[in-house]
Simulated assay, not measured.
Amino acid sequence: MNNERGITLVELLATLTIFSLIIGVVYSLFSFSQANWTHTKGVTQSESSVQELQIVLTRELASPVSLTFQGNELRFEGQNGSFYILSLNGQQLSLSKGEDDFSNTSLLHTFSLPVQRMTLQNKNDSAISTLSEGMGYLTIYYNREGLKTVNNQIKFPISLYQPD
């Protein structure tokens, strides 16, 4: 009678190979899930920031009386007599409001969207510094985060208030 105790070398190698394959598959699934989560989180944060920007600027830029763009600042006067400055410092976009003029303003809102630049354009898409009549666009160029950073833009139509 043959008395066998333990496992043979072939059985041990087969077990290690199968275990290594299982660990490799689990690691690949985990890595893919983590990358997918990172991408989804970045896209969700970017889209949430874009939506926030759209809500605030659509409300504040509704039919301004006057509008001037210089450097990294957009200055405009609302119909209610308030003065606003939309400024870009680095990649940080902020909106300030003043009651009497542009010199004494207080911070109204800071946006978390990483903005690259902004431009003011007329209806023919030519860059302008002052919108004196009719319609124009404020274009904000930003980065959408995720697995890869994607350059995007958002256009805000602006129609100056024309009293009757």
Results as ranks from 00 to 15, higher is better:
residue 8 T to Y: 08
residue 116 Q to E: 10
residue 32 F to L: 14
residue 112 S to A: 12
residue 65 V to G: 01
residue 5 R to S: 00
residue 54 Q to P: 03
residue 25 V to H: 02
residue 12 L to Y: 15
residue 51 Q to W: 09
residue 84 Y to Q: 03
residue 3 N to P: 02
residue 100 D to R: 14
residue 18 I to T: 06
residue 73 E to F: 04
residue 66 S to F: 05
residue 97 K to A: 11
residue 132 S to E: 14
residue 162 Q to N: 04
residue 149 T to L: 10
residue 141 Y to R: 01
residue 161 Y to L: 07
residue 2 N to E: 00
residue 78 G to L: 05
residue 58 T to N: 14
residue 142 Y to E: 07
residue 144 R to N: 04
residue 75 R to F: 02
residue 83 F to E: 10
residue 73 E to Q: 15
residue 145 E to S: 13
residue 6 G to C: 01
residue 127 A to T: 09
residue 57 L to D: 10
residue 105 T to Q: 04
residue 152 N to P: 03
residue 54 Q to K: 09
residue 138 L to W: 02
residue 158 I to V: 09
residue 51 Q to M: 09
residue 19 F to P: 06
residue 79 Q to R: 07
residue 35 A to H: 03
residue 141 Y to S: 03
residue 137 Y to H: 04
residue 89 N to Y: 01
residue 72 N to V: 10
residue 39 H to Q: 06
residue 11 E to M: 00
residue 63 S to D: 15
residue 96 S to L: 03
residue 82 S to W: 10
residue 70 Q to D: 14
residue 13 L to S: 13
residue 81 G to M: 01
residue 92 Q to W: 01
residue 16 L to C: 08
residue 52 E to M: 05
residue 48 S to N: 12
residue 150 V to S: 01
residue 83 F to C: 05
residue 82 S to Q: 15
residue 63 S to I: 11
residue 148 K to L: 14
residue 138 L to A: 01
residue 15 T to V: 12
residue 151 N to Y: 07
residue 87 S to C: 10
residue 35 A to K: 04
residue 27 Y to W: 10
residue 62 A to T: 14
residue 118 M to W: 07
residue 36 N to M: 14
residue 66 S to K: 05
residue 77 E to M: 13
residue 123 K to T: 11
residue 75 R to V: 13
residue 121 Q to C: 07
residue 75 R to P: 05
residue 122 N to V: 02
residue 9 L to H: 11
residue 146 G to S: 04
residue 104 N to F: 14
residue 61 L to I: 09
residue 69 F to R: 04
residue 143 N to I: 13
residue 54 Q to H: 10
residue 109 H to D: 12
residue 62 A to D: 15
